[in-house]
Simulated scan of single mutants.
Amino acid sequence: MPPPLQPEVTVNGEKIPARLIAAEAQNHRAAPGKPGLAWRAAARALAVRELLLQEARRLGLEPKPRLVGPGRREATEEALVRAVIERRVQASVPDEAACRAFHAAHRDLFRSPPLYAASHILLAAAPGTPERADARAVAREILARLAARPQAFEDLARAHSACPSREAGGRLGQLAPGDTVPEFETALATMAVGTITPEPVETRYGFHIIRLDDRAEGAELPFDLARPRVRETMERAAWARAAKALVAELVAAAEITGIDFPRVA
């Protein structure tokens, strides 16, 4: 149900049902006790969607749903929204000079990835299984032993780890971003060299005790190596600006009731 006193939302005379706004509101965060914020964000999102659908009809576009996953195609309305964006959003392509200037002004954005040397002990347990709690308990017992004797890491890895790296005392070798699951990678990024995670790191595989053995920070990339990333970054930013301008144009020309839109600078 909508928060109290929320008015009916219409876009050029087309009503957006409150039940759809309530469902969409689940996708928008709001501070505790302020459901109206999520409601208004959802109403704006659905109003923009309706404007894009109306623009697609005005242009006479035909939906051509694409495959978006194994055995799954776009819904008709999704295909229409994509079609109108492809027709109306034309982002400029940066030239070489613009790319060089952007790289010079944002060198920190274009670096080689950091590299890590790490070891771990894996207490394996699938999510939602009774073994999960047992694996966590064992991981904490091992951490307690490591707190007293950190030099025992390799022996404990050989004795307890469910990863093939146990044969090497838990050593995983060199790791780059993307080589491990996100939770593991996040832990590595926040650790000091030579330290062990104070708590087990939980992933879909179970619980990891991680030791960071070394880190090599990424270096700034010269323009010739960074060129593809620079161009991609600039193209994405240009596309976002063009999409924002299209929405602002449609909002300005529409008659919308029940929800306001912030002014676009």
Rank of each mutant, 00 (worst) to 15 (best):
248 A>S: 13
80 L>E: 03
123 L>D: 03
183 E>Q: 15
197 T>I: 01
191 M>Y: 11
265 A>E: 14
106 H>V: 12
251 V>F: 05
6 Q>E: 15
7 P>K: 13
52 L>G: 04
265 A>K: 08
247 V>H: 09
148 A>T: 11
50 E>V: 11
244 K>G: 15
23 A>F: 10
117 A>Q: 14
64 K>N: 13
122 L>Q: 05
45 A>D: 10
87 R>S: 00
236 R>V: 07
135 A>T: 07
51 L>Q: 06
265 A>W: 06
130 P>F: 06
60 G>F: 01
126 A>M: 03
9 V>E: 14
55 E>P: 00
138 V>L: 15
167 E>S: 15
67 L>W: 04
193 V>G: 03
43 A>N: 04
250 L>Y: 00
240 A>Q: 14
96 E>N: 10
257 T>A: 11
167 E>K: 15
11 V>M: 03
13 G>F: 02
52 L>T: 04
69 G>V: 00
265 A>Q: 10
8 E>Q: 15
124 A>S: 11
167 E>P: 11
99 C>F: 07
124 A>Q: 13
101 A>F: 11
134 D>Y: 02
77 E>L: 02
125 A>W: 05
248 A>V: 13
71 G>L: 06
144 A>Y: 09
88 R>M: 12
239 W>F: 12
22 A>E: 12
241 R>W: 06
201 V>F: 01
144 A>P: 06
99 C>I: 10
13 G>Q: 03
142 I>Q: 05
252 A>N: 02
74 E>M: 04
182 P>R: 05
254 A>L: 05
244 K>C: 09
16 I>S: 02
137 A>W: 02
60 G>E: 00
130 P>W: 04
121 I>S: 02
150 P>R: 11
99 C>G: 13
191 M>K: 08
170 G>P: 07
221 L>R: 08
157 A>L: 07
13 G>P: 01
264 V>E: 14
26 Q>N: 04
3 P>F: 09
64 K>V: 15
258 G>Y: 10
239 W>V: 00
27 N>G: 03
175 L>I: 15
176 A>N: 01
252 A>L: 02
88 R>F: 02
104 A>F: 08
189 A>W: 00
44 R>S: 05
21 I>C: 09
62 E>H: 05
96 E>F: 12
165 S>Q: 03
